[in-house]
Amino acid sequence: MSGSSAQTKTIHEFLAESPDVDSSELWAQFWEILSEAKDRITAELPVQPHPSSAGLDYWATDDASYEGAMNTFAGEPAADGPHAEWLVHSWIGNRKNSILDMNLQVWLGPEVDVPHLIIVFGTIPQIFFYSEFVSRRDLMVETDYLAKYYEPQNESFLQLRGDDRFTWSVSHGTYMRAFLSPVAHSYVAERTEDVVETLREVVRERVDTWLGWVREATAVPEAERAALRQRDHQVRTYGYTLDPMNELSKKFLGAERVEELVAVRAGFQQMEETA
């Protein structure tokens, strides 16, 4: 197989090759990594469970072919600094049948313009890893913002990009490719302990970096905050609703149930509350 075909291979193709691989152990490892990151973040940016995900802390279909957990949280604006407006800690899939999609996503309020944070683990059944600092500005013209947040990450990005254990994974969704920043991680790798431990360190480094940005952030002028929040909410909406993974979930859950879960995950109710 050529490198290009490995990079553009669909999740459906990966699953068709190995449809019944038990990923329970990897689920436990990845959930531990995501939970540790969540705890570190919420220690500095307090949040409360959001009622929209009540009852979804664990769910499964009647035949147990698909399962998951949806934990959503919202923070209150702080008088003296930034807050986490929306935080999602979730997973969906089947731990015994190859496929998992596990997420930690933190969306900041408009008091600062620090990039948002996304960390995703999955099994297809190979390991999938995606991590992103979601830009709040137009990087093609706001080069000061690019230099402040993205240029310092260039070396660590290139280090992982050049690691032969990791194959670049190309989303088949054009919006999801437009979503990528210059330092996004999007990889498939073999199911080995050394890969897991490498990714554990990548996540810790990203969280360290991100929390440092949050601590040192300068305030966005009051007059600019409404427009920044509106843009954030648009990006949040499209990032969840246009994710090609939704189409895969519809095969297991049906379109109506997937749309319900996407609405909770994206935080449509929370957006309305803060509009």
Rank of each mutant, 00 (worst) to 15 (best):
G3I: 05
S4M: 12
S4C: 11
K9L: 04
T10H: 03
I11K: 01
L15N: 13
L15D: 10
V21N: 05
E25L: 13
E25M: 15
E25Q: 14
L26H: 03
F30N: 03
A37G: 13
I41Q: 01
V47H: 06
Q48E: 14
P49Y: 01
A54Y: 05
A54T: 10
L56A: 05
L56S: 08
Y58D: 10
W59V: 00
A60M: 08
A60V: 03
T61C: 05
D63Q: 10
A64P: 09
Y66R: 11
G68E: 01
T72E: 08
G75Y: 00
E76P: 09
E76G: 10
A79K: 07
H83R: 11
A84V: 04
W86E: 08
W86N: 10
I92T: 03
I92L: 05
N94C: 04
R95Q: 15
R95Y: 07
K96V: 05
N97D: 10
N97L: 05
I99V: 11
I99E: 06
L100R: 02
D101N: 13
D101Q: 04
L104C: 12
W107G: 02
W107S: 07
L108H: 00
P115R: 02
I118A: 01
G122W: 00
P125M: 02
Q126F: 00
F133Y: 08
R137V: 00
M140H: 08
V141G: 07
E142Q: 08
E142V: 00
D144K: 13
A147R: 12
N154R: 15
R161L: 11
G162C: 10
D163N: 15
D164T: 13
G173V: 04
Y175T: 09
M176L: 15
L180C: 12
P182V: 00
H185P: 07
V188N: 10
A189P: 12
A189F: 00
T192H: 06
E193V: 09
D194T: 12
D194H: 09
V196D: 09
L199K: 09
V202P: 12
R204M: 10
L211D: 14
G212E: 13
G212D: 15
G212N: 15
V214A: 03
E216Q: 14
P221H: 12
P221Y: 03
A223I: 06
R225T: 10
A226I: 07
R229M: 06
D232E: 14
R236C: 09
T237R: 11
T237K: 09
Y238H: 08
P244I: 00
S249E: 09
S249M: 01
K251F: 01
K251C: 11
F252N: 14
E256K: 14
Q269E: 15
A275G: 10
